[in-house]
């Protein structure tokens, strides 16, 4: 990043500059090798995205509509998504049956207390995550500016 007008060039590329400023930015970009490369990169990235965008799977829109209007799980959305979860549950059920048929009755394992511990851990992890997000959102802007600044200084050196 060696041209200080790259921000304007970026806005120009996405059509976010008012006409007067856009003309000036266009004139600049035409005579600036850095900005021309920036525009070429953005155009190439946009073209590659467009050329490789995956199409939404057939049936996804109908399933989404059904879920959206019923506010829950309709048959279509079940067919579309929940068969995966259902398959996992079914596999678990089959394993449970196999275990109980193959072994003598055993004391019930302490599932409840294990679940409680796990939920406690999850609460704790979530608190840590929230604290981390609060911290990073406060610092990001300064960091971004400083990082961009340091990068451009590094390049000019």
């Amino acid at each position: 990043m060696s041209c200080d007008k790259e921000g304007k060039t970026l806005l120009l590329h996405y059509g976010e500059l008012p006409p007067g400023e856009a003309d000036a930015a266009r004139v600049h970009a035409a005579s600036c090798a850095d900005c021309r490369r920036l525009l070429a990169g953005l155009e190439k990235a946009g073209a590659l995205l467009a050329a490789s965008d995956p199409a939404a799977p057939a049936g996804l829109a109908a399933a989404a509509l059904e879920r959206a209007v019923t506010g829950g799980q309709g048959l279509l959305s079940w067919l579309f998504l929940d068969w995966r979860r259902a398959a996992v549950s079914a596999a678990a059920a089959v394993m449970m049956v196999a275990v109980f048929r193959g072994a003598a009755p055993e004391p019930v394992p302490p599932v409840a207390s294990a679940a409680t511990i796990e939920e406690g851990l999850e609460d704790l992890e979530y608190s840590i995550y929230q604290a981390r997000m609060d911290f990073s959102s406060r610092d990001t802007q300064d960091f971004d500016y400083k990082y961009a600044d340091m990068e451009s200084r590094k390049e000019s050196v």
Binding site: M1, E6, R37, G41, T140, D144, Y147
Partner: peptide, 14 residues
């Protein structure tokens, strides 16, 4: 911040 991220993204993509 958003513009700084976009500029960095564009530079890396380039």
């Amino acid at each position: 911040t958003v513009l700084a991220r976009a500029s960095r993204a564009a530079a890396k993509l380039r």
